[in-house]
Amino acid sequence: MSVSSDTRSISVIRARFSAAGLPTLGAASALLAWWTATTVFNVSSFFLPSPADIMTAFRKQPEYLLRESWVTMTETLIGFGIAAASGLLIAMVLTASSVIQRATLPLLVALNSIPKVAIAPLLVVWMGFGQGPKITLVLLICFFPVVVSTMSGLTSTPADFGELARSLSASWWRVYFKVRLPWALPQIFVGLKVAISLAVIGAVVAEISNPDRGLGSVIVLSGQSFDTPLAFTALVLLALMSVMLFYVICAVERLLLPWARAISA
């Protein structure tokens, strides 16, 4: 009895370690390697600042940096939210009717192939300054993955379920909302995870092309004043934001779809 509970607690500890310990260990060793490299080779902080230089740069003006982070975060979240909602809706419309899908999907793919970086200045022309064009760029950059993943989820309902639904002579709507949509959710989350990482990139690209507020603007301005540690601080904050948003989505997925992990290998 005690032996089995011992082995169980060991396996729980091992699972916890691989969930939280391993990522921490990986990040810590990368930091250590970076810090060692900058001190051993005596790299100038103008060229490549060490982690310590970055901490110092952050301590100098934490409020400013956090405020700019918040600006980038809101642009990211608003753009992502609109993209997720409209992407879902459009994918549902496209999969509902093959006529609409055939008519509009090539157009959608073509639009997606436009380099988003290239239209960032155009958005300023069309929408002016402020957060509007930035949110729009985020929306444009992360809309497509949501559409594609939702479509693939909605069209991958197993044949077994299809036959079951037909034998119950269930209405199209009931099958859609009780079978097809829930089955598509894991796929939809794949799209959301890709989209949230792209969303942060979109926000920064928009800020760099038209700097006023946000971490992208901090990077541009610090470059102009040759303040490399500040630029790196902004990059680190961006990375942290990206990781945090990504894992928030993972957590929501685990909470909503405990079955999805269990049925996949």
Binding site: F161, S167, K178, V179, A260
Partner: peptide, 15 residues
Amino acid sequence: RDVSMMFQQPALLPW
């Protein structure tokens, strides 16, 4: 509706 069918696979909805 008064005829029901059972298949080789259980086809239970996993959620």
